[in-house]
Amino acid sequence: MMSGRVHIPVICHIRKRGTEIRCTLSPTHKGDHRNPYARASWPRRAGETQTS
């Protein structure tokens, strides 16, 4: 049974709130999240993890 949590160790994968867009930067990136394919960026929230 899947828990609905996803861990992809090579990318950040944090979802932009209210969308299906996910961050494609490295998991250790600094600053805002970004997905260049969707041409989107959004601020990092305190305490975020890949399972957020």
Rank of each mutant, 00 (worst) to 15 (best):
G47N: 12
V10A: 03
K30G: 00
D32Y: 03
P9M: 04
I14L: 10
S52C: 07
S26K: 14
A38M: 10
W42F: 08
R45E: 15
I8M: 09
R44T: 08
T19P: 02
I8V: 14
D32L: 00
T49K: 05
C23D: 05
K16C: 10
D32K: 12
H29K: 05
R39H: 12
S41I: 01
T49V: 06
R44G: 04
K30E: 15
C12D: 14
M2W: 13
E48T: 03
G47A: 04
E48R: 01
P36S: 09
E48D: 10
K16D: 08
K16Q: 15
L25P: 03
R5I: 12
H13I: 08
K30I: 11
Q50Y: 12
Q50A: 08
I11Q: 08
G4L: 09
G31E: 07
E48G: 00
H33E: 11
K16N: 05
A40V: 11
E48S: 00
T28K: 04
K16A: 00
R17L: 04
G47C: 06
R17Y: 10
R17G: 08
A38L: 01
M2P: 15
H7S: 06
K30Y: 05
W42G: 06
H7T: 11
E20Q: 12
H13R: 07
N35H: 10
G47W: 07
I14Q: 04
E48H: 07
A38W: 07
I11D: 01
E20D: 15
P27R: 09
I21N: 05
R22W: 05
P36E: 14
L25Q: 15
Y37L: 11
C23F: 06
I14M: 01
G4D: 13
R44I: 02
S3G: 13
W42S: 03
G31P: 03
I21A: 04
R34Y: 07
N35R: 07
R15N: 07
Y37T: 08
P9Q: 09
A38N: 11
G31L: 05
T28V: 02
D32A: 09
I8S: 04
Y37S: 11
P27A: 14
A46L: 08
A46H: 06
T51E: 14
R39C: 08
H7A: 00
M2C: 05
V6Q: 09
G31S: 06
R45D: 14
V10W: 13
A38D: 15
R5F: 11
R17H: 14
T49D: 14
I21L: 07
S52L: 05
D32C: 00
R39W: 03
Q50N: 02
I21M: 02
M1Q: 08
T28M: 00
N35K: 02
S41Y: 11
R34S: 13
N35W: 06
R34H: 10
S26I: 01
I14A: 02
R17F: 09
A40W: 00
I11H: 01
T24Q: 11
T51Q: 06
P43K: 15
A38C: 08
N35F: 05
E20T: 14
G4H: 13
T49L: 00
S52E: 11
P43M: 07
P9G: 14
